[in-house]
Simulated assay, not measured.
Amino acid sequence: MMIVDALPFYTLMIDPAATTETAARQATAMRDWLLVQSPEQIKEFQKTSITRLAKTKAVRPALVTAGINSDRKTVADAVYELMTTDLRPELARIKAPIEIVYAYDALFGVPAARVDAMYRQAYASAPDVHFTRIDDSFHFVMLDQPERFSSAVELFLNH
C-alpha cells in the first residue's frame, strides 16, 4: 500500500495532541464555513489553499479550477470526515507493506526532522512501514517533483 502525503489522522497537522473529540469542533466550523462562502470567497480560498499545496506555479490554475468546480457539500462533508477520522488504531491490522511518500520544503518553516518525526510517530503502530520524503515539494509531490515521485512509485512496485 502506498500512501502519498497523508496522515492517518489529518488533524495532527493542526494539533499534535488532537483526538476525534477535540477535532469535531474545528471540523464542524470548517464544514459550516465552506458551505456559506460566496462563489468569490470560494475562489479566493481555493487560490490561497492551492498556493500552499502546490509549489509549482504552472499546475496551480487547474487545481484551483477543479476545486471551484467541485460539489461544495461533498467537499465540506469530506473535509469534516477527514478531520474527525483517526485511523491510527487500525494500522496494526494492515498486513501489507506500507510505503509513505511525503513532502517537505524549507518554506514550511518547520525543520525536516520534525516533519519526519510526525510521520513516523503517526504510523508507529503499522507493522511494516517505510518512509520516503520528497524534498522541494508541497503536498502535490506528483506535480512538484514528478521524476522523484515516479521513481518512488517504481521502487515501491518493484520491491
Rank of each mutant, 00 (worst) to 15 (best):
A17P: 14
A24L: 12
M13G: 03
A29V: 11
F9P: 02
P39K: 02
T22G: 04
L7T: 00
T28N: 11
R25I: 11
T11H: 10
A17K: 14
T20I: 10
L12F: 12
P16R: 13
T28Q: 14
L12P: 15
L12K: 15
M13D: 10
A29S: 12
T22W: 03
W33E: 09
V4Q: 00
E21Y: 06
A6W: 01
P16L: 06
W33L: 14
A27D: 00
T20A: 09
A27F: 06
Q26E: 15
T22E: 01
T19R: 11
T22M: 01
I14V: 09
V36K: 12
M13Y: 06
T20M: 12
F9R: 02
D32A: 12
D32L: 14
A24R: 09
W33I: 03
W33K: 14
D5I: 09
A27V: 05
A24H: 11
D5A: 05
T28S: 09
Y10V: 10
A6K: 04
P8H: 02
P16K: 05
T11Q: 07
Q26T: 12
D15S: 09
A18C: 13
A6E: 15
D5P: 06
P16V: 09
L12Q: 15
M30T: 09
A6N: 08
T22I: 11
L7Q: 00
I14F: 14
A17D: 15
D15W: 04
M13L: 08
T19N: 10
R25M: 09
E40Y: 00
P16C: 04
L35I: 13
A18Q: 04
D15T: 06
Y10N: 07
P8N: 01
P39Q: 02
Q26V: 10
F9Y: 03
L7E: 00
T28C: 07
M13K: 11
Q37D: 03
V4P: 00
F9W: 02
M30Q: 13
L7H: 00
T11M: 08
A18W: 05
T28Y: 03
L7C: 05
A6R: 04
T22S: 14
M30G: 08
Y10E: 13
D32Y: 05
S38G: 08
P39N: 01
E21H: 08
A27R: 03
A27P: 04
P8E: 01
A29M: 14
A17R: 15
D15K: 12
P8A: 06
R25N: 06
A18S: 14
A18R: 06
V4W: 01
D15H: 07
D5H: 02
L7N: 01
Y10W: 07
T20L: 08
T11S: 08
